[in-house]
Amino acid sequence: MTLDFPIDNPPTRYHPLTTQLPIKVATEDVSVRYGGKLALEDVTLEIPDRAVTACIGPSGCGKSTFLRCVNRMNDTIDTARVSGSIRIDSEEVNGRDVDPVVLRARVGMVFQKPNPFPKSIYENVAYGPRIHGLAETKAELDHIVETSLIKAGLWAEVADRLHHPGTSLSGGQQQRLVIARAIAVNPEVILMDEPCSALDPIATARIEELIDEMRENYSLIIVTHSMAQAARVSQMTAFFHLGKLVEYGPTEEIFTNPLDQRTQDYITGRFG
């Protein structure tokens, strides 16, 4: 066995939880190896429902790897080996009988670059509900498309051009289209991997406002490089460094009075 980390690496610092929200996602000793390389080591944390949890940390810290564990996106990488337990409502995500396709409807994902299908705006949103059999009639499907676009704050801008290509929209609109697509299949958890880093400040503000509204219905986990964004949109913050969860707690605590020196150094811009 090789030691990938110094043995004196201190354990994760957990702040006392100030929220009474029920736990949606619970992980226990989650580790991920890519080939021989340990990318994530023994991450244990509980993510509340109806709240935004931000994952922060320098590039290569494991935060995106962690996010990709929740809907088994790491399955798509041949060399990736995931160990430990990830439960959504006490149901094991890595269970043999769990169909990753069904799981990914429950756990939607939004990426850094908006990735609409090369189809119409309507078809982008209708695709998921159709393959998951959520609508029996055209009217039902129309209804799902409309409500999803409304929830994603895009309806007013696209109602009169639903059959235009999704790629004809601006970057910020495309990102909201992708969010509408995720919402359309009634997810419980929504993962966002730097959803605003390709957007201008106004489009970013719209997405942040949307994230805040979505908090009423979903458990959101967002990976971001922007400290200010994490502070603005999240209620819980997890700080990752070198594949370890260093500190986890209410966002306000992490940003005003972090317990670990590494968290402090990172959020205040002191990391080399």
Binding site: M227, T256, N257, Q264, I267, T268
Partner: peptide
């Protein structure tokens, strides 16, 4: 600089 944590303090 938008200081946070100890810098803000």
């Amino acid at each position: 600089r938008q200081p946070i944590a100890q810098d803000l303090r």
